[in-house]
Design a protein around this nucleic acid. Sequence first.
DNA 1: AAATAGTTTGACCAATTGCTATGATTTTGG
DNA 2: CCAAAATCATAGCAATTGGTCAAACTATTT
Lengths: 217, 217
Amino acid sequence: MNEPGKRTMTASAQKRRKIRDTISGAAIREFARNGLSGTSTQAIAQSAGITKAQLHYYISSKEELYRQVLGDIVKEWREIFFIAPFQHDPALAISTYIDRKIRHALKYPDISRLFANEIGRGAPEMREHWGVLKNSTEMANGVIRDWIAKGMIQPVDPLLFQMNMWAVTQSYAEYEAQARVLMDLDDDTPMNADRIIAEATQLFLLRCGLSGERVFR
Amino acid sequence: MNEPGKRTMTASAQKRRKIRDTISGAAIREFARNGLSGTSTQAIAQSAGITKAQLHYYISSKEELYRQVLGDIVKEWREIFFIAPFQHDPALAISTYIDRKIRHALKYPDISRLFANEIGRGAPEMREHWGVLKNSTEMANGVIRDWIAKGMIQPVDPLLFQMNMWAVTQSYAEYEAQARVLMDLDDDTPMNADRIIAEATQLFLLRCGLSGERVFR
DNA sequence: AAATAGTTTGACCAATTGCTATGATTTTGG
DNA sequence: CCAAAATCATAGCAATTGGTCAAACTATTT
């Protein structure tokens, strides 16, 4: 038997991992569409291409599976969307964040939707994650306040500025269906990421009194 | 028997209307939290303070009730959030829109959440509403383009500018739970509407190159 | 007051829910 | 190659699902 995390992996362990990933993917898809209570284990199993009983062999319960994928999302986001590395350059920090966040939203909209769903429900499963999330937000708060103090950007409400960036970037995943209608795009045509990024970047750079020139990529 | 819509209303008709409103309110609450498939008629009935059988006496089906409240929301929004009346003054038009929209989001967050949920699911019940919604969006598009042509505002992507306003204003309903955590607010304390409106207004006025002064109210 | 119409109720329906028990099958280590 | 362990599928569990029904109850009309 092989411990997960070991460098070598037997064929069976690989297969097991693959199945688990398939399940996670299917769960994200289904939970994003219909929420926790609106998703049946049957639907998840079907979406994963396995039987319901087989699914229940791999998971302990629907709620637990939900908690697991939610935790994975929070963890992944914490690593990807981190404003601190570019503290020295506000324009770079902001445009980098927006670029990453929007590309992620367009590429993995279900992840964003699942998260939005959880928050919309009152975030009952987020209790254990608030601490770390609040922490990074307050770190970013400090960075922004520092920018203001040093006269690098115009004064903004640090928290609301962050929340508004989140809202705009996130919305292109959540409101994809609406965006497609308004843009006359069918479901197969990808949305124009560059166009969206350009407008969003302008929006937040100008709020800070920074040049509207495209700064990043 | 009394037709609905007549000026006079018998006591029984009034009672019937009151029950229907109670049901709509309960439905919005429950659908907002758990979506269409995640909400049971039992839960709606309980939230409305009636029995399940009684609920089914007033509605034809869960889906139909969902369609009804969704239709009501779309209709109400079309009346409330209309940018055209202030065409002559971009700053006034924008700040009025943001003010109204955010106050509505903070006052009736469930309505915003129900709508967000529907769009997140792929908006399967929005087919009949897209036409009129697209229309008003394109009217506003024209207004904004006109502003740009006349040099009243800096160039913006008209559609994305609207979508971003929508995203920011909407988010304070959808992400209320998160906002409360980040702001250290308990569930009873109302959020500071003026603060939110001020930052959002600045954001979008500055994008247009308009003075950051508070223009409205 | 009787007849009629509108409303409420509890019992009930088949279908689906999350999940399990059990035996069959496959995979694996010795 | 064989026994043990892991995986899988069928059938089934009690509980809940959306919705119905007829009987009881309450209002309204004549």
